[in-house]
Design a protein around this nucleic acid. Structure first.
Lengths: 126, 126
DNA sequence: AGCTTGCATCGATGAACATCAATGCAACGA
DNA sequence: TCGTTGCATTGATGTTCATCGATGCAAGCT
């Protein structure tokens, strides 16, 4: 999902995003747009060893287990995490490629030259 | 909004986010979780001069002018952009502090040491 | 086999969101 | 003063989302 679009990296702040790129990116940001999912992601990402059992995540919230499972599914669909079953437990881990990519997209390319503004908005060229 | 929380910068991937931080951050990511708003933001950010008139943004979408105005309002409330009225027109510009902060939050602190995983999930210590 | 535990999926419900048409309002020109 | 243009706000409507209880299912234990 959202796998390496060829024009993925110049990033958001330098060139106007086309519709397809915006749609794909929005899915990922939407997945991050919930406090429960952000906390889940940070708990997974900051875990020593890189993996967390769901049984360690659930008790940190005042939410039912199906709800946590639902949020984890959305994070997984966004390409932010992956899961693996080992015996009785399911372990989640961060997919750092996606966070790296987002960070790159939100990073400004050093110092903007800030060229002079053109004071001629649409339709003002009377 | 969301102004410099003292513990803002260690960022998401190193330590578990507390509830308040997650709630504040989620508002910003939620604002980015829509393709129209992402395109609006990139059009504003990539503009030479750093400012765009609304009259230049609206025709790029198949949406009514009030809808564009609504999305711009959400981006502004998230602290991502700011606006200024000059004469007849309203100009929007990027607030790079917020995107910088998001980029920092999503950036991993160099190379994770990846310490050995502890194979003992909750309740498994029989 | 039968029971228990850990987790995912399904179906329903209430809240939040995106969108539009109508309206309001400021700034400029005739 | 009146009409026009550029943009924001309001109210209404259809859609999406978060959450839960119930259920399903795999793995391990007795």
């Amino acid at each position: 999902m959202l796998g390496q679009t060829d024009a993925c990296c110049p990033g958001l702040l330098t060139a106007p995003l086309d519709e397809d790129q915006a749609t794909e990116l929005a899915k990922v940001f939407k997945a991050l747009g919930d406090p429960v999912r952000l906390r889940l992601l940070s708990m997974i990402a900051s875990r020593a060893g890189g993996e967390v059992c769901v049984c360690d995540l659930t008790p940190a919230f005042d939410l039912s287990q199906p709800t946590i499972s639902h949020h984890l599914k959305l994070l997984k669909q966004a390409g932010l995490i992956d899961s693996e079953r080992r015996g009785t437990w399911v372990y989640y881990r961060l997919l750092p490629e996606m966070t790296d990519r987002l960070a790159g997209i939100l990073t400004r390319p050093a110092g903007e030259p800030l060229p002079l503004a053109v004071e001629t908005p649409a339709g003002a060229a009377s």
